[in-house]
Design a protein around this nucleic acid. Structure first.
Lengths: 228, 228
DNA sequence: TTTAAATAATGATTTGTATCACCAAAATAA
DNA sequence: TTATTTTGGTGATACAAATCATTATTTAAA
């Protein structure tokens, strides 16, 4: 954590504060701080100890597993107003994966002990988190399983839908990821990803110019993702 | 749910009852019932409404996704004293997958509304579930990702380790699954699975006789699973 | 029991995509 | 600026595993 980048935490910044009492908000606020990261900064590394709950305030974060010979797998991207890593820090005392900022990012750090205290005091809040966690995990689960079963066109279609529906909420966007990273997210290799994107471009399903992508036919992309 | 197979629920049967007050145990007990299933019985089907939290009391359950042309994917098996489906019913109002009994199985059904009431009253219990859910999901996550990346020998080695370490806690066991189901769990095809098992048998790593399997060298199997 | 259906096993063939090799272009450092 | 590294892109090849085809074996039904 970079102490030189910290800033005070106002109560409005506490996630889902409407479910908390003033006292509980105070508890969390006093054990929280915001840290700013620049593009490509590491937020945490796998196998280090989990001491904080992290909540993305702004920016974009990739959650990834570091494999041997630089073969990473990107699990997911995290957009603002989401807990980092599905709050899965509850399950283990060390991180199972790493996180890095894909652009200028602000993270709210909350001391895990204090956070657990609040949860135990406030069943309503704990239940809310349980629902968030469940939802998130089901979604991720399906995504991974689907990816597993699909072949290239399906995988890349799924990737594009992920950007359109979940990350950017738009059919036109600029991806802050390299081709290699896109492949790591789609579950394939750089070469295969590029080839498939080029095919989609030739078929006029998408326009692509460097990191700028425009999805022309979400219908076709959706069909491809379902077809596998 | 088969009402003819129900039976009364004693307080000792409530999961993690030590975290609950007498009153809360009463609440849950009054809205619970146990249902018995025979081998191959369906417990629930994907896309049906979730109205109960389910807890496996005895037996063995497979959680699977039904794909087109009978191509199922088995996510996991659930052994006694575990919630069905990672309590993930919190996230959605319909099941995302199906469940079926692999042998004589008893399931404790708890009304979901009552259960949520108790959770909101008891932050301690909710936090416990949050931890269970987190842990389970991290585990599953890693398992699926690992499987995804591995090739045949690694996948089958992983499958065997799953039985040895998680399901049977023994290096000798009788699997209540067909070869097709084993393949669905390992993430491959029936033919490839059989071939790989035969190879392992020829290499004396395992003994296999129908559904009876004995793992002779967990060392080699572990190496194979790590090697990919 | 005999018949039918489901499951297990093995071989031959096909195919998708990872891997390898290489070059172009862009970004970064010197 | 030039040099160096990283990223993007294309073609040729290799290979693992899915698919197809067929037979054996077990299990369930008539």
């Amino acid at each position: 954590m970079k102490s030189n980048n910290q800033q005070a935490v106002s109560s409005g910044l506490i996630p889902y504060a409407e479910y908390l009492t003033t006292e509980q908000i105070g508890l969390i606020r006093n054990s929280s701080n915001i840290v700013k990261y620049s593009t490509k900064d590491t937020i945490f590394k796998q196998n280090t100890r989990t001491s904080h709950i992290m909540f993305v305030k702004s920016g974009l974060v990739k959650i990834y597993k570091e494999g041997k010979d630089q073969k990473n797998i990107i699990y997911k991207l995290v957009t603002p107003d989401h807990y980092l890593g599905n709050i899965s820090v509850f399950g283990e005392d060390t991180f199972r994966y790493s996180a890095a900022a894909l652009k200028e990012t602000e993270i709210l750090f909350i001391d895990i002990t204090i956070f657990k205290q609040v949860l135990e005091l406030n069943g309503r809040y704990a239940t809310l988190l349980l629902e968030l966690l469940s939802h998130d995990n089901l979604y991720m689960f399906d995504k991974i399983i689907a990816q597993n079963q699909q072949q290239l066109p399906g995988k890349v279609a799924e990737l594009l839908l992920y950007f359109v529906n979940t990350i950017f909420n738009s059919d036109e966007f600029e991806i802050p990821l390299s081709r290699t990273e896109l492949a790591e997210l789609a579950g394939t290799t750089k070469e295969s990803l590029i080839r498939t994107l080029t095919e989609f471009k030739n078929d006029k399903i998408i326009d692509i110019d460097g990191k700028k992508i425009k999805v022309n036919s979400i219908d076709i992309i959706t069909k491809l993702s379902k077809l596998g």
